[in-house]
């Protein structure tokens, strides 16, 4: 064991590496810090020859002005509904399909799986014009369903869950459950889901974040003025007659905050998810 760990032992980082890393982290955090600084100052600090670099005491004033000038709460609610629903549906539908592809025999399986893999990279947002027409015809324009429906499940999720199920669930376990009289839906619920719980929750988190940050499609079918999502409402603050920097940055800060909190709470899982995705991809 000891021998192995020395074999795996990486280089010991010198102070140079630590300095470089520290600078890097500073660079990645500075824009966020600066957002906070402007958001917490009043607008009078803008236009000085040195930009403000120290937080002020107006954060909550500015927040309440954001709430007054755009419908942030409705947007927040919409974003939550969209992100949560897509996260849940992606987990359910991806693990089901992944289970079928990984463990079940049925005619056309390989062909269908091949189709899934082939669609992973298809940039579906290029079909946006007909998609928009379809959504309007269905009477879903300006509803959260318009945003949710196209992302209920993704090829990436199916493919990822297939891998996870293939690796983590032994065939014997599936067989045993079936001999026990479980139907497939039962096997999925009792064996598959618990077996890939951690990967599935990373998938859920990723879907949640992607849905939360999505902009192009919501801008078209759920634009601000019809409720909007946090992102589309945020984009409103950026220009036009809203000419107040503190307001803009407060909005940006508010839009980022929920995901930052989520990230701080689940950083380890998210990091491992990104790294796992790399190996699988």
């Amino acid at each position: 064991m000891a021998a192995k760990s020395t074999a795996r032992a990486e280089r010991r980082p010198g102070p140079l590496v630590y300095t470089a890393m520290a600078l890097l982290v500073l660079a990645s955090l500075f824009p966020l810090y600066w957002t906070f600084v402007v958001a917490s100052n009043d607008n009078s600090v803008i236009g000085q020859s040195t930009p403000p670099l120290v937080p002020g005491g107006h954060l909550f004033d500015n927040f309440s002005r954001v709430f007054d000038s755009v419908e942030f709460w409705i947007a927040m609610k919409n974003s939550l509904i969209i992100s949560t629903t897509t996260a849940v549906s992606n987990v359910v539908l991806s693990t089901m399909a992944g289970f079928a592809f990984a463990k079940l025999r049925f005619r056309g399986r390989n062909l269908l799986l091949g189709t899934v893999v082939a669609t992973v990279m298809v940039p579906t947002q290029l079909g946006i014009v007909p998609l928009y027409m379809m959504i309007t015809k269905m009477g879903l324009f300006a509803s959260v369903s318009a945003v949710i429906l196209p992302s209920l499940v993704s090829a990436f999720g199916v493919f990822w869950m297939r891998q996870a199920i293939d690796e983590n669930i032994p065939d014997e376990l599936v067989e045993a459950a079936r001999v026990d009289g479980c139907r497939l839906i039962g096997v999925w619920w009792h064996v598959v889901l618990p077996g890939v719980r951690s990967t599935a929750s990373v998938l859920a988190m990723f879907v949640f974040m992607t849905a939360w940050n999505d902009f192009f499609w919501p801008l078209i079918v759920l634009p601000p003025g019809t409720g909007g999502t946090v992102q589309t409402v945020l984009s409103q603050l950026a220009a036009g007659y809203f000419t107040d920097y503190s307001l803009i940055m407060s909005g940006a800060f508010l839009g980022v905050l929920p995901l930052l909190v989520l990230f701080v709470a689940f950083a380890r899982q998210i990091v491992s998810g990104v790294m796992a995705g790399a190996v699988k991809g």
């Binding site: 982290v25 939360w212 990230f263 998210i270």
Partner: peptide, 23 residues
């Protein structure tokens, strides 16, 4: 360190666009 380098990726593109456009 690993989490810290990932933070920018969590920030939405819209927020990035808004903030950097001001910068």
């Amino acid at each position: 360190w690993r989490s810290a380098v990932l933070v920018p990726n969590v920030v939405s593109i819209v927020a990035v666009g808004v903030v950097f456009s001001q910068m």
